[in-house]
Amino acid sequence: MAPKDDIDPASLKALLSKEKETREKLTKKWIPNFFETPFWRSIFRHKIDDTPRNRSLAVLSNVFLHLQPAKLNRDAVRYAFCWGMGGITFYLFIILTFTGVALMFYYHPTKADAFRDILFLKNDVPFGNFLRNMHRWAAHAMIITTWLHQMRVFMTGSYKPPREFNWNIGVILLLVTMLLSFTGYLLPDDQLGFWAVTVGTNMARATPVLGHEGPGIELVELLGGKITAYNDVRFALLGGSIVDANALLRAYIWHCVALPILGATFMIVHFWRIRKDGSLSGPAPVMLAAEAGQAKGRR
């Protein structure tokens, strides 16, 4: 069906502008424009009409948004380039921080309480079970998105100069992310976490020279020392020779305090460096082998 076109454009335009005029007159008179109140203007200092200047100011004058540049490569918003994976990883970290803080209100890191606190969360705390599920699944998801993010950074060669150092910050973030997840695993103090952490930390027994079952402890004996189950790296990780109350406390402090601070710190550096290294690496114009001063050849 062809669109009906029986109103002539000129009169339509006139009609619309009349309508707008009346509307503005009414609102100006009866409802002061909220965006022009002193209250609003005290928070957001720039005007709100849609001009290039205000679009930039919206980003630049906002402490959270100014993490990002005011303008970006027009192709960088294509989903195909960065898949949004770094951003999603960061967003999951924020979700984990919020749900994690809420969980902390109900959790005591002691052998007597920990498991019961989880039961309490599951069965009695309003939305406690939902909170715990969100935290658990967001943690798993963050591991996956970190891996995918790294894969995309690799595939786009984004670790090449000048971003070598930021790739290394990324490797640290990868480690922190996995350790965060791992330390959280013990906290419910159930069979799953207990045995996972037992298996995981048992490997530390075998650390060369520093673990009591590792190769090279003879070297320490030559120097007059002795590495036992009570002074090796595993003991340092667990605060004991078995996974028990001290291990629970250590996991808790790593999980809720130390690692989040470390992770957040390195994320700040990561984001800062993205900007300092010239924002996203691409999508960049392709470079030809001849231009790189190379002969044609396989690589």
Partner: peptide, 21 residues
Amino acid sequence: LDAPLEEPANPNLTMNPSKAP
């Protein structure tokens, strides 16, 4: 889907298989 929660930790009862995350 609910996050898993097994029996309370019990050093005398080995999970088989015991797996890391």
